[in-house]
């Protein structure tokens, strides 16, 4: 059973794209050679910003709802498991349905596999592997008090809106505190806007 006071926090703004999480994940014995974490560039042509994507572990997992074979189970402690091998028919419905783009079908073995928050570890109180190797705490596993102390400028959120669907998740994403806050992060949004409008930094460079 995953201890209730320990949470998984993702802070994409802290990700440096080192891929340590990807390598650590792919070394796991339960899915050796395959990484269950997706580390994506947002737009490499324009920026070096990367985003680590793990399973968000939805309270009502869309992947499980659309699965015709009932192969995706959510444990009572809120962790959505990888597809059950005897049941999964590799139809890919979950791949299409997941709003976060997490599940992946492995055609060679006709099986969907995805992040299960290292259930073999987290169910006995250990941290997920990716969070143990992340050098910048973009992937952080700990208590609400710890994250509050570490990141006073950010607020964890676990509610996401996709069209008419509102999703609540076990995994939390760190977001800058909103405009009503009294912290300087209000201006983070402002400078981002002006940054987008700013001229090419290499405008002066002759070619």
């Amino acid at each position: 059973m995953k201890p209730d006071h320990l949470n998984f926090y993702i802070d994409p703004s802290r990700c440096i794209g080192c891929q340590a999480c990807v390598q650590a994940c792919s070394e796991c014995d339960t899915h050796r050679g395959e990484s269950m974490i997706h580390l994506e560039y947002v737009d490499r042509a324009a920026s070096v910003q990367t985003v680590p994507v793990v399973c968000m572990h939805c309270d009502q997992p869309t992947c499980a709802e659309v699965c015709p074979a009932d192969a995706i189970k959510r444990t009572e402690d809120g962790v959505v498991q990888s597809a059950r091998k005897p049941r999964c028919i590799a139809c890919g419905n979950c791949v299409m349905a997941c709003p976060f783009g997490v599940p992946e079908v492995y055609e060679d073995r006709k099986l969907m596999m995805k992040c299960d928050m290292c259930y073999d570890r987290t169910s006995i109180g250990k941290k997920p592997m990716c969070a143990t190797v992340c050098p910048s705490q973009a992937l952080f596993y700990g208590t609400a008090e710890e994250i509050e102390r570490l990141r006073p400028q950010s607020i964890p959120t676990n509610q996401f809106q996709f069209g008419n669907q509102v999703i609540t998740t076990r995994v939390l994403v760190m977001a800058p505190r909103g405009p009503v806050g009294i912290t300087p992060s209000v201006r983070v949004t402002a400078s981002l806007d002006s940054g987008l409008a700013s001229p090419d930094p290499f405008d002066e460079v002759e070619l």
Binding site: R44, A45, V48, D200, L207
Partner: peptide, 9 residues
């Protein structure tokens, strides 16, 4: 690899 994160020269 065409990116805007490097100087044009």
């Amino acid at each position: 690899m065409v990116v805007t994160t490097i100087r044009p020269d």
